[in-house]
Each structure stands twice: as C-alpha cells, then as structure tokens.
Simulated assay, not measured.
Amino acid sequence: MRIRVFHETNYTYEHPARNLIQVLRLRPRDHDGQYVRRWRIEPSIDGRISEREDGFGNVVHWFTADEPAESLTIRVTGEVDTNEMHGVVRGTVERLPDEFYLRDSDLALASEPIQAFARAVREAGDASPLPCLHRLLAAVHEKVVFEPGPTSASTTAAQSFEQAKGVCQDLTHIFIAAARHLEIPTRYVSGYFHRDDGMVDQEAGHSWVESLVPNLGWVGFDPAHGIATTEAHIRVAVGLDYLGAAPIRGSRMGGGTETLDVKLRVEQSQATVQS
C-alpha cells in the first residue's frame, strides 16, 4: 500500500511568543514492511532546524525560531510504501535492551485495578505471551470505549481505566501498563493509520503498542481498533509512553493563551506499489 500523509499543526498565540523551541518526532524510518518514499517537514516561520537521534532511535528535529511569533505552523507531507507483516516488526533501529521496556513510566503505571485486569486476562487461557497478548488486546478494546474528548495528553492509564473511556493514547497506555505487569516488554508507538472506511480527514495522529514475543520479536497491537498492526499503519516513533514518542513537544516564553488546531489527511495513493 502507498499511503500519503498531510499533517498540519497550527499554533496561535495571544501575544508574540519568544524563544520558541519545538521538538519534533514526525519522521518515520525505513524498516521491513515500511519504506519512506518522500517526507518533508516545514515550519512556517524562519528559524534553525537540526536533525538528530534520541535514545529510543527516533529521528528528532529541533526547531528554534529566529524571532518572536504570533503563530507557528508545522507542516508535514510525505508518502510511505507499506507491506503486510501481520503485526511482526523487524528491521527497526534498536538502541536499548529489550528489558528497558519493562520499566514503569508515569503515564502507564499499573494501578491495582489494572493489575487485577491483567491477571484475569492471563488466567483466562494459555499464559504464554502471544495468546495472552491477543486476549489482552481484545479485553482492552472491549473494556474501554473509544471516545474523543474526555482525556488529555497527561491522562494516566489508571484514570482512563477508571473512566472506561478514552482516545487511542489512553487505550495504548492501559495495554502497556497491563502487559508490563505481566512481565512482557511493551512500548508506545506513535504514527499514522489509514482508515478503510473512506474517512481520510482525521483529528489527530494514531498510537498503538509493540510487545516482545519470544522467538518472534516485536509485534504491534492496536487496542483502539482491536487488531494487530497492518499495512495501514505508518510507524513513526517509540517510547515508554506518550511523552517519549509525542509528535511535537515544545517550550516558549510569553505569548499568553495558546490555540491549537490540527489538520490531518491520511489517504491511499493511487500510484501502484512495485512488489
């Protein structure tokens, strides 16, 4: 599948904001089943942009504005070729030991209710990692209703689990917390998802998880949709939770109230992908 992405993040400030710095994790990397044909990141104002790699192996761009600004737009355009890997993730850049992804993280801590939920999933059948993860995928998808709006970027897994509703980020954090409680290394993934229902205009990017399965490697699970990852997923960045893989995080001085608007279009290109 060839997927075309147009992603525009618009910030408007009440007063000119000074010392604007934006940390961007917006560029996907090549790996088995994913090839980046073209990708461009364009800030709307003058400044300096540098590329580096973070500790997770993500491509990170640092943008520093030259002058105070009343608004800033970060525009991303690109095309990616994907192949069906049935959830198995291979050929990725790995900078950390697998056991690192057993660490607790602020947004994905397993509260006592999540721990009990995870144990019940494990005890419901074959306790080996792969079948257990598939049951966990189904259980999270059934337990937590996808509902845009009730949570924020700082909402924890425990809070989302208690409310039993949230967005893809929230379901992802609950899955991570439960899987780590079961001693399965699991990480947060941010990226894009091409919907098959004809809805190409979306409100935000997507998130899912990757869990480590012995003798198979990293496997992607999308609890928001209740499926293993497919060729419709574009993998961009990973982290222990959202904070390590957030598409854009930044800082500024002054500026007053900030208004954020996101435009995202993810569609299948009509061009033929050569096998």
Rank of each mutant, 00 (worst) to 15 (best):
D32Q: 14
V80W: 09
D66W: 10
H181C: 02
L24W: 09
S50H: 08
V121G: 01
I45R: 09
L107W: 07
G198E: 03
A120M: 11
S111K: 13
H86D: 12
L133S: 06
V145Y: 09
N215I: 02
I234V: 12
L136D: 04
A116K: 13
Q270K: 08
G191T: 12
F161W: 06
L96K: 14
R90K: 14
H15E: 14
S44A: 06
W218E: 00
P148I: 13
D197I: 01
A232T: 08
E123S: 08
R25D: 00
E14K: 08
R103D: 10
A124R: 13
V59A: 12
I45K: 05
W39N: 05
R27M: 15
T151R: 11
E70N: 09
N58T: 09
H134M: 12
G87F: 15
S71V: 04
L243M: 11
R180Q: 03
R122K: 15
C132W: 12
V59N: 04
L137C: 04
R29N: 06
H225S: 01
S275G: 10
V200L: 11
G239D: 09
V167K: 02
V262K: 07
D170Y: 10
Q268F: 12
A65D: 02
G254K: 06
V144S: 02
W218R: 02
A65S: 12
R75S: 03
R95G: 00
E123M: 09
R4P: 01
S269D: 05
F146L: 02
E162S: 10
I49Q: 15
G149D: 02
H206Y: 07
S71E: 04
T82Y: 05
A127G: 00
E79S: 06
S50R: 15
V238Q: 06
Q115A: 12
G166V: 07
E142P: 00
K263H: 13
E14Y: 11
R52Y: 14
P214D: 03
W62R: 11
